[in-house]
Computed example of a mutant assay.
Amino acid sequence: MSIDATTQLVTLLGHPVEHSFSPRLHNAAFRAQGVNAAYVATPVRPAALDAAVAGLRALQFLGANVTTPHKEAVLPLLDAVTDRARAVGAVNTIVRDEDTDRLRGDNTDIEGFLQPLDEAAGGALNGASMLVFGAGGAARAVVYGLLTHYDPDRLTIVARRPEQAEGLAADLAEHAPSDALRVSSFEEATLSVRTSRLIVNATPLGMAPDRRGQTPWPNPVDFSADHVVYDLVYTPEETRLLRDAAAEGATPIGGLDMLVEQAAAAYRQWTDRDMPRDAVYEALRSGKQ
């Protein structure tokens, strides 16, 4: 990659950011298409978020991604926010208007989550029963996407902290069919797991290195060929949850595809180009920066 006086910059705002794959995948895409841009990850402590967002304007960045812990806190610092980001209450992508320097926030996690699911299951999930493990930021995007895209007859949110799940359900109730949203503890979720067509892991359980080998549901006998099991964890590509589900005949979907698709949606907004996915997957799997 050649850096010169016309190179435009994109950054990741978060804390910490050292683990992020975003520089690897976006720089691979820029390189493959000859886009004169570079992507860097910048650790930003919460107290410095205002200054960091102002810096995007001042330094005329193409835009930015936003990750933990800033996805919610960044909303009031932007000039405009898309309807889907407002509904979820979180922004993961910022785009700077080159004429006005106005900053617009979006949430491409929703699009990134739905794309692989549509390809794997398509219309078979319309009106189906669904279950989501987790009630954090990732789960918010997942639940909103499922409610607005598939109109499920039942969507159960399973969380270790019931108050967090209740809050998520209350926040998104206006997007749900009548009585579709339910809340459950892990201890009481067995029947919901068995009777849900789609199971989504939106927790970090299974993520390498610290949680590798862990799973949100250690009872694989509750899975069957009727299940689609989607794990948002992307490293390793095949988690224990996905191995267990596939062994019972379920359709597994890994988190690497969501990672790439949410990035592709942001890349399109920054460059007006479709991301070269083959080059991105090659870079991710080879470890090439």
Rank of each mutant, 00 (worst) to 15 (best):
S2K: 13
D4M: 03
T7C: 02
G14F: 13
H15A: 11
F21C: 03
S22F: 06
P23F: 12
P23M: 12
N27A: 06
R31H: 14
G34P: 08
V35T: 15
V35H: 09
N36Q: 14
A38Q: 14
A38D: 08
A38G: 11
A38I: 06
Y39W: 09
V40C: 12
V44Q: 10
R45M: 09
P46A: 14
A47H: 10
L49H: 11
D50M: 02
A51D: 15
A51S: 15
A54F: 03
L56M: 14
L56V: 15
L56S: 12
L59Q: 15
A64R: 08
N65A: 07
V66G: 04
T67D: 05
H70E: 07
K71V: 09
K71Q: 05
E72M: 05
L75T: 01
L77H: 09
L77P: 08
L78N: 03
D79N: 14
D79W: 10
D79I: 05
A80Y: 01
V88S: 01
V91D: 03
T93S: 10
R96M: 12
E98K: 14
G105I: 02
N107E: 02
T108P: 06
I110N: 01
E111L: 11
G112P: 03
G112W: 02
L114S: 04
L114N: 06
L114T: 04
E119Q: 13
A120M: 04
A120Q: 06
A121V: 03
G123C: 00
G123M: 00
G127Y: 05
A128C: 09
V132N: 01
G134N: 11
A135L: 04
G137T: 05
A138D: 03
A141I: 05
V142L: 02
Y144E: 05
G145H: 04
L146R: 02
Y150M: 00
Y150G: 05
Y150H: 12
P152C: 07
D153F: 00
R154C: 08
I157L: 08
A159N: 15
P162G: 04
A165K: 06
L168Y: 07
A169M: 07
A170Q: 14
A170T: 13
A173H: 00
A173P: 00
H175Q: 08
P177G: 11
D179A: 09
V183N: 01
S184Q: 01
F186H: 13
E188N: 10
E188L: 03
A189G: 03
T195S: 14
S196M: 05
S196Q: 04
A202L: 10
T203D: 13
G206L: 11
A208S: 15
R212P: 00
G213E: 13
T215Q: 07
P218R: 09
F223V: 14
A225W: 06
H227G: 08
V228E: 01
Y230R: 11
D231A: 08
L232K: 04
L232I: 05
E237A: 14
E238G: 02
A245W: 04
A246C: 07
A247S: 14
A250H: 05
P252R: 09
I253F: 09
G254K: 06
G255F: 03
D257T: 15
V260P: 12
V260N: 12
E261H: 15
R268L: 13
D272H: 11
D274F: 00
M275Q: 11
P276D: 07
R277D: 00
V280F: 08
V280Q: 07
V280E: 06
V280N: 01
L284I: 12
R285P: 00
G287E: 05
G287M: 09
